[in-house]
Write a protein that binds this DNA or RNA. Structure first.
Length: 842
RNA sequence: GGGCCCAUAGUCUAGUGGUUAUGAUGUCACCUUGACAUGGUGGAGGUCGCCGGUUCGACUCCGGCUGGGCCCACCA
């Protein structure tokens, strides 16, 4: 770089990045005596490409990391990738055109590892390119040996304290992925379907009418419920048929189905009645249940194993009803007329069958939301299988309490956490029926079925390949391996422990961590799960602070998604504007707020870069061979003191903002100081001193150079966390050799210095700016160039103002090009905008 | 249905119990001045979503409403 050129971020940034890497500027030194600030960096899921939302929130995290580093902390800022989950499997399946469930287990594992090793470096390169100041040597992938060991140890430890258990129970199941999934992996999908009204035959020949959205589950019907306190009726149809429905339902149905009430009674008199349900294995009995309400449907609910969470809960309340298995792991029906079909197809078939049997009376159009698996969009089923769970529903209060001990930035994000916990319905299902992932470290004794756990020192293990080192308690040496793997969240919920144990000697200094930065969409997944693990294992919170970023939205403020095709790729943006511009944009949103992505905002960052470069160019050229030494505040010129006062106040504010993770306000203040005070005014004011040093004393020149040097350096430092490239470029060009730090990013954050704060000087300078502004306005109105000389400038003001202006009168003359300045009353032009009037004679 | 967030010039946005309501972008006029035309100066553009209340005074605090967003639940 040299001063004559324009700054080209596209050319310079890769070079600067290389400089950082070569000099290991962001290296974490475990031996350092500095106080540690540890960050629980989110490990992005390796999925091909970084998206703009990543660029947005990772930039925001990085502002903080860089700030803390400059504040003198030894910043522990590791980097990991999350690559053991379903997302990875899907990536491999789609790029290699294979299907994990149909491949040999080991072959698929090998293939997946191969793909990961190939794409990972390219993927990480995007994070480096946006200027992430993590130490990329402090690295983990959630599938590597280190993570496998810690994750398996976590399983074993929780098993020992009986927090992990295995149970045959209905589970959320994805028929497409062939695996159990967790509540948090569900997504809503709007759907048009029908609510089907069906007749069940009572023993007296009358019919009880129930409505369902899942008629295909008839073979699995296990019961019918009503509200025992509700009002029900028997009605007579024109053809003589007798129906039993709730009283409330009559109103809704009688228009379409003429009916005459012949008897009114309480729901309780239906209880115990036997009902013949078509295609059900055996007759079911009417029972009371709290979930049945007369005002919904017909007031009669039919329950299947398993139509949904409600059915699962109903079965738990009705132990007399035994579940019937109707489908296999692929969601295929194994019994009844729909044998061999999946739910969608089965629904149509079953409706035809029911119609033919004469029990289908009505199909009502219904628009509702169903749960689908977020990874593949497949409607989920509930299937009873054997799964491993972490038992935590009993600890809701503990987690709520732990959550309230975290410092939330911004505070209202805690509500999402609380809301989630209050709504939890299931223990945490951690087993997945996949071949790729961290194996659940368990064998079963073939003889006595006892669970055999490996020794901690042997971890990680793969029970399919490895064998237990000792006999079962019953003496048997025959074992069955557990084939399931752990859900990826079971591992990624251990990132603080995973990262900290990369440096075992200082583990206690790293964990619990200082900060968890992340976006708001995964509060319920990652944040909550991490807290759970830390509480279960160590009874402590995993971090002190959590900082929640918002999302990057599309230009019209809509969420970006692949399906909508409104994604913006950061790579494109960077190759056009550079990383500083992207980061500048990301710094414009308040923490936690979503922000629409608009290309013109990148232009603003570009302008900022150019302005920083040009102002630096001007300053450096004119500082010449200036030897910096701290000046005595008493020897500083008034107008210089004006700027230094503003500078110090800005430093104080910006520091306070950054300590609260309010990087956007820091940026705002620093930008305002730089553009308005420094560039628009100060640089113009001092030009006469700079260009005509002969007209000034040595002290005047020393003062201006000291001020210019300090202000520019401070501005660069304040902006360094946000725009790390341009600030580094200028620092290297000029300041590095004087200041002695190898990088601006390891230099010290400026400190507020009260010696350089002078209220009178600030007021005087402000008056100067007001007057010169008014003069500019006059010149502009008269269509004159700003350099036009003023013969006589008259200022009308009070005595206090006069005294202040006199302090800076030479600078005022210089900046307004006024030959003469007088104070007086003979103003004929009073500017409305100012509380002082001026008169300008040319 | 529950919870949370948001509403400020055409667009995006800052902000505070009393100022002339911030900045960007766009727009209009002027200025090619020895850092910068990727610039500078100035102008126009707002009943701060609506309705009440508290207050001497509300864009700001409180309540309600409307609209938008997010999270959660449910729709048998």
């Amino acid at each position: 770089m040299d001063l004559t050129k324009n700054y080209d971020s596209l050319e310079e940034e890769p070079r600067i990045q290389e400089f950082w890497e070569k000099n290991k500027v962001y290296r974490f030194d475990p031996e350092s005596k500095k106080k540690i600030f540890s960050i629980d960096t989110p490990p992005p899921t390796v999925s091909g490409k970084m998206h703009i939302g990543h660029a947005f929130s990772y930039s925001q995290q990085d502002f903080v990391a860089r700030y803390k580093r400059m504040r003198g902390f030894s910043v522990f800022y590791p980097f990991g990738t999350d690559d053991n989950g379903l997302a990875t499997i899907r990536l491999v399946e789609s790029t290699k055109k294979v299907k994990g469930t149909r491949m040999d287990r080991q072959e698929f594992i090998d293939l997946t590892m191969e793909v990961l090793n190939e794409i990972r470096p390219k993927y990480i390169a995007d994070w480096k390119r946006i200027g992430t100041s993590a130490d990329f040597d402090v690295y983990y992938t959630t599938i590597n040996e280190h993570c496998r060991r810690i994750s398996q140890k976590s399983f074993i430890d929780l098993h020992k304290i009986k927090r992990v258990y295995k149970k045959f129970a209905p589970t959320l199941w994805c028929p497409e992925c062939h695996t159990a999934i967790a509540q948090v992996e569900l997504e809503d999908r709007e759907k048009d379907t029908t609510l089907d009204y069906i007749k069940g035959k009572l023993e007296d020949g009358s019919f009880i009418i129930y409505a369902t959205t899942r008629p295909e589950l008839h073979p699995g019907c296990v019961g019918i419920s009503i509200d025992e306190k509700g009002d029900y009726v028997k009605v007579k149809r024109p053809d003589g048929e007798i129906w039993a429905i709730s009283k409330d339902a009559v109103e809704k149905m009688e228009e379409e189905f003429p009916m005459e009430i012949i008897k009114t009674f309480k729901g309780s008199s239906l209880a115990g009645k036997k009902v013949e349900i078509k295609f059900a294995e055996r007759p079911v009995f009417v029972s009371h249940d709290i979930s049945a309400e007369t005002k919904y449907g017909t007031g009669v609910v039919y329950y299947c194993s398993y139509g949904g969470l409600d059915c699962v809960q109903w079965l738990a309340r009705h132990p007399e009803a035994k579940p019937v298995r109707v489908m296999d792991e692929s969601g295929t029906y194994t019994v009844g007329p729909c044998k061999g079909m999946m739910s969608e197809e089965a629904r149509g078939k079953m409706l035809d069958e029911l119609d033919r049997e004469g029990v289908l009376i009505k199909k009502e159009k219904l628009h509702h939301t169903t749960n689908v698996h977020e990874r593949c969009g497949t409607p989920i089923e509930y299937i009873a299988t054997e799964q491993w769970f972490i038992r935590y529903l009993d600890l809701k209060d503990k987690f709520l309490d732990a959550g309230s001990r975290l410092n939330w930035y911004p505070p209202h994000m805690k509500n999402r956490y609380d809301n989630w916990i209050k709504g939890l319905q299931w223990d945490w299902c951690i087993s997945r029926q996949r071949s790729f992932g961290i194996p659940i470290p368990v064998w079963y004794c073939k003889k006595c079925k006892e669970v055999i756990l490996p020794d901690e020192k042997d971890l990680p293990i793969d029970p399919v390949k490895d064998r237990p080192k000792k006999k079962c308690r019953c003496g048997s040496t025959e074992f069955e391996p557990e084939k399931d793997v752990l859900d990826t969240w079971a591992t990624s919920s251990l990132t603080p422990q995973i990262a900290a144990s990369l440096f075992p000697k200082i583990y206690d200094k790293l964990y619990p961590m200082d900060l968890r930065p992340q976006a708001h969409d995964i509060i319920t997944f990652w944040l909550f799960n991490t807290l759970v693990k830390s509480q279960l294992h160590n009874n402590i919170n995993p971090w002190k602070d959590v900082m929640i970023s918002g999302w990057a939205l599309d230009p019209s403020g809509k969420k970006m998604s692949k399906s909508k095709g409104n994604m913006v790729e950061p790579q494109e943006v960077i190759s056009k504007y550079g990383a500083d511009c992207l980061r500048f944009w990301a710094s414009g949103s308040k923490l936690g707020e979503d922000m629409p992505f608009m290309e013109k905002d990148l232009q603003t960052g570009k302008k900022m870069t150019t302005k920083l470069w040009n102002a630096s160019k001007f300053s450096i050229m004119n500082l010449g061979d200036y030897k910096y030494r701290k000046m005595d505040a008493k020897k500083i010129n008034a107008i210089d003191m004006w700027l230094l006062t503003k500078l110090n106040k800005m430093v104080k504010e910006c520091t306070e903002y950054f300590d609260r993770y309010e990087y956007s306000k820091t940026k705002l203040e620093a930008e305002k100081f730089f553009w308005q005070s420094l560039c628009d005014n100060y640089l113009e004011i001092i030009k006469d001193r700079i260009y005509n040093p002969g007209n000034y004393t040595k002290e005047d020149i020393e003062s201006v150079k000291f001020t210019l040097y300090t202000s520019l350096l401070y501005v660069l430092k304040m902006m360094a966390p946000i725009m790390p490239y341009i600030t580094e470029a200028v620092y290297q060009l000029y300041f590095a050799k004087i200041e002695g730090d190898k990088s601006i990013h390891t230099s010290k954050w400026p400190e507020y210095d009260k010696d350089f704060v002078d209220e009178d000087a600030e007021k005087a300078g402000d008056l100067l700016v007001d007057v010169s502004s008014a003069v500019r306005k006059v010149k502009s109105e008269q269509k004159l160039a700003l350099k036009t000389e003023v013969k006589k400038l008259t200022i009308k003001c009070d005595n206090n103002q006069k005294k202040l202006i006199e302090i800076v009168i030479d600078d005022l003359k210089a900046v307004t090009k006024a030959k003469e300045i007088v104070f007086g009353k003979e103003t004929d032009k009073v500017s409305e905008a100012f509380n002082l009037g001026i008169n300008v004679e040319f």
